[in-house]
Design a protein around this nucleic acid. Structure first.
Lengths: 232, 232
DNA sequence: CATATTTGTTAGTCTAATCTAACTTATTAT
DNA sequence: ATAATAAGTTAGATTAGACTAACAAATATG
């Protein structure tokens, strides 16, 4: 008689709250960067106390989204992995939509997407996807997981590992901090920009780079390590 | 020394949570319909118990959003009125965006907007507004409050109050329930549709209406009371 | 190896938002 | 005018998500 109510209860129980979605996303992204996700690591990423993340991890384990043993790294289950990927999918699709359809700059999209990603409507994101022509990369060159949570493996190199004289195209960013994005704007560098490494200064590892407009700019090694490129 | 922290605290304290935004919106909309908002009324609208809405109303009064005296109707303050209007603004701008830019049907937009309206980014909604060309009405003909929370007064008539022989144009809806919208879709009636009242059946008050394609449809009085029209 | 440091856990508190049960105060109807 | 009904309130409980203080366990370091 009350089977329906039972199933609805189970359904709601298994829906991540906004907070849990954020934890899930954090664990997912850290894992993807091959970082061991400890309770401490997670609490740092989420800006919460250790007991808070500890507690959250236990609740998420109960829901079958991850496995955790004291002092061992947190491991997402298949279910948790998929949930995490789908949140990242919503985030990156939104970023792409904000950029391509609504005309926002790549430095503006993250903060807005951070809120939009928690919208549950599936049709909403499917429509974005369709309007965008089913993109595979977001405005920062990061891959958009597909509807099954599967991610295209992209294999770009850090500019810092490229040799003098090489010509490369900017394909992605290792970190998409607003500061970096604004810096790149100022230097007129965007995805697809062609860079020729004219000289690497051995003293401080800074890169002298020639742009297509024949202007030369100098990038610190730190910045170079944030730029993912493809040799051309 | 800690003045900044104090101000940030005050700022956050004065930001409505998602729940409070929903209460504010409900009170705002009920007030606009000239309905006396009692604790009971509010609890019904919000689908919560009376103690819950009672409690919430007290908290909102503390924040200076409304005035309440036992057994008397809830009255929004200027601040509360504006906050409420701005949430409705976000909701209706979103509906318009979903309809005009993303191609959703007018029966689909409400549920999605219900979530999007809680996004705090101001630039996000301003951009929607700009892309839409600063619309004043949503896809159901309801007015979109401006950035100051001011609302254009629209003065449409209920179809039910129109006399036989009159020709009218559909301008808005008294209630935008999904059922009504789907029904109107089926009858091929949308905003702007011209209706000629051919005959009013005295027996059940049903309206025999001629459409521009020369087809005749019969609308119950209830449906007629939900249709806001302009005489032409 | 012993100690210091880092990591994780426990216990207890807090706020927001919800509930139920039981009660009080108005209003309405007979 | 009084009893019945509706409206509002109080008290106490719950859950999610956060905190601090204090302690325990593992790892790292001198």
């Amino acid at each position: 008689m009350f089977h329906h109510i039972y199933y609805i209860y189970i359904l709601i129980y298994n829906m991540p709250t906004q907070a849990k979605e954020n934890y899930l996303k954090a664990i997912y992204l850290l894992s993807r960067e091959s970082i061991d996700v400890s309770i401490t690591e997670l609490s740092k990423k989420m800006c919460v106390s250790k007991p808070t993340s500890n507690n959250m991890v236990k609740k998420m384990e109960e829901r079958g989204w991850l496995l955790y043993e004291k002092y061992k790294p947190i491991k997402l289950t298949t279910k948790g992995e998929k949930l995490g990927a789908l949140i990242v999918r919503k985030h990156r699709l939104t970023e792409m939509f904000l950029s391509k359809v609504m005309g926002f700059g790549w430095e503006e999209v993250h903060d807005i997407a951070e809120q939009v990603e928690h919208i549950s409507s599936i049709v909403f994101f499917d429509r974005m996807d369709k309007i965008l022509g089913f993109p595979t990369l977001d405005p920062h060159g990061s891959p958009i997981p597909n509807r099954e949570g599967e991610v295209l493996k992209v294999n770009y190199l850090k500019l810092g590992s490229i040799k003098e004289g090489q010509k490369v195209k900017l394909r992605g960013l290792e970190n998409s901090s607003k500061d970096l994005l604004l810096y790149l704007n100022k230097k007129r560098i965007k995805l697809g920009t062609v860079l020729l490494i004219r000289h690497i200064e051995t003293f401080d590892n800074s890169f002298e780079v020639l742009l297509e407009d024949n202007s030369t700019i100098v990038l610190t090694f730190d910045v170079c390590q944030s730029l993912l490129v493809e040799e051309i």
